[in-house]
Write a protein that binds this DNA or RNA. Structure first.
Lengths: 223, 223
DNA sequence: ACCTGAACACCGTTCAAGT
DNA sequence: ACCTGAACACCGTTCAAGT
């Protein structure tokens, strides 16, 4: 909920609260200093005391999201199982803010929970057999893939505007169903799955499985 | 290059040329109807004859990029080798416009070369053993991962502004080197690889390998 | 059909000034 | 230290009008 603040002093954490609410609802582009200022009964310029510029404000949103990351305790399970659990936890955090997952990428090696996640991922990857440098590159790309998974979640998008969502789905369906089944037999027969996966949990399970299986795969083929 | 147009009639294809040049140089956000209008000696509103709104203009950029996609002829090689080649071709096209790779996602099932690519990918995935629906979901996520690979290419970003790039790298390096090696031993020792991979070709080879290995992996574990 | 002109409702950000 | 006010240089888009 976006509620109007009426306290005397401007609290940057409360500004971030508002910004997060707006961004969740209408996307990061809808966040503006002017809107936030009005919400907090202050001049737009007052915000520049606490945020260097808009990029800095969005970075604060990324940090806020990453604050929810928890790193599971090491267990006796195989390294790849533990990595799977670690990445699943990361994705769960991102899923709370589908339109904002991107904001976390530039903050992962800055915000503390991002660092803890990264360090643990590198531990598990080296335990699996990667060199430190290879672990770094593989880990980096895995994080990017998982962020993309959430960002392009075809179900979550525009939850706040269900009619726009329905309209968008109908448009896509119409476009695909107008294709020639002779020329595109597989696309037309898989139209449903291409537009929108059957289950959201299945979508995420598959996405995470693909990432972890890819990691195991490149490890095997390098030996 | 962004050059000024002086023809009588407004040619939408030439507007797209300019828009692509601006977007490549300064990012999609820097593309504006007003700038394009000035470039073509026309009122901003004149562009609305040819583009419904800004989203429509960016969609045209996505289509323009996808126009370069070529689908390799079927060969006798294994399905996964052929898929690897198909996806490598796709990534090569995207790499020509690192900041714009995102624009292609909503156009893949609309623009003809995107459809041809998708149909061929589904053929190869079903040949590998996926059901049509699973092939659709796996293909979808692979495309998303590869787009993310290009979008987050740590080397390509801000090529137009090399000093900003250097400054950004220096800032990241400073941030990582200020971390405690006791608390983050792997991050600090892998700092170089985390900030910027050694080789660009290696970066892309690894990214594509991860995707294809992931596909093979989930296929095996489902049997 | 194709383009113009003026206007509306927004932006981020700088600068100088107030308390 | 913290906030204001006015201004600058932008945006996308609507509407009514011109040829």
């Amino acid at each position: 909920m976006i509620t109007k603040e009426t306290s005397r002093r401007l609290d940057p954490e409360k500004v971030i609260d508002s910004a997060l609410a707006i961004a969740d609802d209408e996307g990061p582009a809808a966040v503006s200093f002017r809107k936030l200022a009005a919400l907090h009964d202050v001049t737009p310029m007052a915000l520049y005391r606490h945020f260097k510029d808009k990029e800095d404000l969005l970075a604060a949103l990324g940090d806020r999201i990453l604050a929810d990351v928890v790193v599971p305790e090491p267990s006796d399970k195989r390294w790849d199982k533990q990595l799977h659990a670690l990445l699943t936890g990361f994705v769960t955090v991102l899923r709370a803010h589908p339109r904002l997952a991107d904001l976390t990428l530039p903050r992962i090696l800055v915000a503390e929970p991002g660092l803890a996640l990264s360090e643990r991922a590198l531990e598990l990857l080296t335990e699996g057999g990667f060199t430190t440098d290879d672990a770094a590159e593989v880990g980096r790309q895995s994080i990017c893939s998982l962020i993309a998974l959430v960002t392009t979640d075809p179900i979550a998008l525009e939850v706040s505007d269900p009619e726009a969502r329905e309209a968008s789905l109908r448009r896509k369906r119409a476009a695909l169903s107008s294709l020639s089944p002779q020329r595109y037999p597989l696309i037309t027969s898989a139209a449903g799955a291409l537009i929108c996966p059957s289950s959201r949990d299945r979508y995420y399970d598959l996405g995470i499985d693909l990432v972890v299986a890819g990691i195991r795969g490149v490890l095997d083929q390098e030996r």
